[in-house]
Amino acid sequence: MSDAKKIVLAEDNSTLSLLLKFRLEKEGYKLLIAADGKEAIELIEQHDPELILTDIMMPFISGLEVISHVRNKLNKQTPIIVFSAAGQEEMVLKAFNLGANDFMGKPFSPNELVIRVKRLLR
């Protein structure tokens, strides 16, 4: 499984993280879970994943800062999918401006996420 594609998932809702981890690992990916933006940045720097999934609103460091860190500090073009709650249209726009590739509004269907992940990692 060493050639499994690595995905960093930053999400402060541990139940959702767990669910997505199971779902995506079933598809053959390797999931690294971060509970907040700070952990996410550490994981990204350490493991250099193929894809990043991040929630926008997280404690300490927001998803927007994670995106900006990846694009501007690390100068990486790793695909990024952001999750946002309803009513955060403004945030989503900012996320795209900062270089996010795709977004999913919560609540979302895990199956749909899998489809989008596959498309970005093809």
């Binding site: 609103m57 709650a85 309803a86 009513g87 955060q88 403004e90």
Partner: peptide
């Protein structure tokens, strides 16, 4: 509070 009043 997380799910409310985030809108314009």
């Amino acid at each position: 509070y997380k799910e409310i009043l985030s809108s314009t």
